[in-house]
Design a protein around this nucleic acid. Sequence first.
DNA 1: ACCTCCCTGGCC
DNA 2: GGCCAGGGAGGT
Length: 262
Amino acid sequence: MTGRRFDKVEVTHPRTARHNGGEASIVENRLQGRTVKGVNRHGKFLVAPLDKGFTMVAHLGMSGRFIVGDDSQSVPPPHSHFRAWMDDGVVITFVDPRTFGFVAVFDEVELETTGLRRLGPDAWESPPTVEALRLSLAKRTAPIKALLLDQGPVAGLGNIYADEALFLAGIDPRTPGGEVDEAPLERLLASIQVVLSGAIDNGGTSLDDLAYLLPDGRAGDNLSQLHVYGRDGEPCHVCGETIDKVIIRARSTHFCPGCQSG
DNA sequence: ACCTCCCTGGCC
DNA sequence: GGCCAGGGAGGT
């Protein structure tokens, strides 16, 4: 995308523009005429610096998808809430049935007040050292699972991969963050890499609801690789005990009572 | 540091 | 017909 310019932008759902006050016209007017200077990812946020000091920030939520193509398909797919026509003929379409995702455009001042400010180091590109992770978890009493979802200690894990990483590391998700010792934290950092690399290789985890799909519309294939997520009531692949499910921070949390005692 | 809210497709 | 799933922001 770098170097391309936004010729025309249409935002057709106010919720997609909710970080600009729900005003589609703000997103449209700020993007039109701007040139893309880069496209980066931090955790689950897409961050694209533009000229004139603006930054486009997007999040896919649960069901968001960017489709990049040309204008040959003039009828956008259902639940298309954002379309951008670039100066070289490329058309970018944002499809998001559940509208948990968003597209925003911030100036320098606004950028400092967004959720990006609170993001920790990226889980995949620049994971924290065990010392840094220990520091950010020190004295925290919230369950380690909740702190992984917070995106503060480390950014990029959602509910599925947080459960899977804690399983591989042998950590009870209910353990207060500050009570996770150095050895399990080392295992956690290694497990995060294993879980994410496997998931990426498999094209991500599409569940039965098919909320998440690859950009070309295919389902990701990682579901069969999960050890605990969605397997409550089934035997653990490692020890045979029954996978349990509890609610932490209003999120279902799956773990093996046999393997995750730390 | 917690709770609630948003939203839709898929499933019971 | 009703419930559930999830990420993040906002409020208490």
